[in-house]
Amino acid sequence: MEGFDWASVSASLPFLMKGLSYTVQLTVVAAIGGTLWGILLALARLSGIAPLAWAAAAYVNLMRSVPLLLVIFWFYFLVPVMLQWVSGAAYPPKIGPDRSAYVTFILFEGAYFCEIVRAGIQSIPKGQLGAAYAIGLNYAQAMRLIILPQALRNMLPVLLTQTIVLFQDVSLVALLNVTDLVGAAVKIAQRDSRLVEMYTLVAVVYFVLSYALSLGVKALNRRIAIIR
């Protein structure tokens, strides 16, 4: 194949940008939602209440031993059925793969964030919890006011690194025909028969973005290290 044909690329830029904005949205929502869900899971695992800790551990281990691709498809089938069951409607709600992906990634990434949060919490000396109880705080207050703020700061670099992994993992939704950055490129590639050009382009764009992000995390790392 002689010569790249960049005409399709430039003509389809608006469509590609739409895909990129979906990718970014999904990454941000899943990172925030996954962190919150991960904190809840970590607290459950460390709660000392046996059934709760066991259920959380089972959930985390299951999510972490199944391919993400499989999880994405599971939720794609399950989310409409679950919503229909909850709402009691006659038809499953119209929730395309683009929207079920939000649920998928929050629940899936939660399992990974849980382990990061758990390590973060465990890095705080036990004496602090004792001290918090001594000044009359209850468990929830001690976690919210004393432990979590420090733990979250300790684990921020790891959380951000995991978010870059998430940013790349999001590309798998393209296999469910969602228009994320990769999905948009695949669609244009198929329509215009320009696979080589579009796949090269999307690789370059992804590389530049995630390399820049990883440099950002490194810089942040250095700043936090100095504060400490």
């Binding site: 003509a11 608006p14 469509f15 119209k94 025909n177 228009t179 669609k187 198929q190 329509r191």
Partner: peptide, 27 residues
Amino acid sequence: QKAKETGAITVGYRESSIPFSYLDNAG
């Protein structure tokens, strides 16, 4: 009946079945 009740109808299309059903540059 469904269209009447929901006020909407949904058409499924293909994204690259030229010239039957595909996306233009605006998507």
